[in-house]
């Protein structure tokens, strides 16, 4: 709960003016508009927060942060919520959090993303045999345009970012 308390403290000065909502480009798809989401945070409505897809839809355009009359770091707050969701591995957000995780895992291994491995990891993580099918059409299109690297995974250790990732994990732990 500490993370949420921290977030609450961060957002305490919020005056519910709604500028964040008005400026959000993804607001139409959000089930809880940002203003409501922040209100939930202030009101300790934790179930409601993690029942919503709002923060996962944030595309980090930073418009809300720019316009907030209280100068609140709203984009960072969205990121915090994403982090919490990832950490808790909440089922609702797995599609998204595991996608990120797989992406990062691939990066950790090679210092860059290898699409084939990345998607493999992702499908593995999702444990859904039908999932690859839903990506088939997109995959074929990308392949046609040579956007997917097919070479086999290089030896682990080349471009290894283990130390960097470890450090980040330590920092996150300390937060």
């Amino acid at each position: 709960m500490d993370e949420l308390l921290q977030l609450k403290t961060m957002l305490n000065p919020c005056i519910q003016c709604g500028t964040c909502t008005a400026s959000c480009p993804n607001e139409v798809d959000m089930d809880l508009v940002p203003r409501k989401l922040w209100r939930m945070v202030l009101m300790d409505r934790h179930e409601a927060i993690f029942d919503s897809r709002t923060f996962i839809l944030c595309s980090s355009c930073y418009l809300c942060t720019l316009r907030c009359p209280r100068g609140l770091p709203l984009t960072a707050a969205m990121a915090r919520l994403k982090a919490i969701a990832a950490k808790r591995d909440l089922a609702k957000y797995r599609k998204s959090t595991r996608f990120y995780k797989s992406f990062m895992e691939s990066v950790r291994r090679h210092g860059r993303v290898r699409e084939g491995e990345f998607m493999g990891l992702y499908f593995l993580a999702m444990k859904n045999p039908l999932l690859p099918l839903s990506f088939a059409s997109l995959g074929i299109q990308l392949m046609k345009k040579n956007k997917v690297a097919f070479e086999l995974p290089a030896k682990p250790g080349i471009g290894n970012l283990d130390r960097l990732f470890k450090k980040v994990a330590e920092i996150e732990e300390a937060l």
Partner: peptide
């Protein structure tokens, strides 16, 4: 003007 009214709709 882009605004969000009380109902939360932009």
């Amino acid at each position: 003007l882009y605004i969000t009214d009380d109902s939360g709709i932009r």
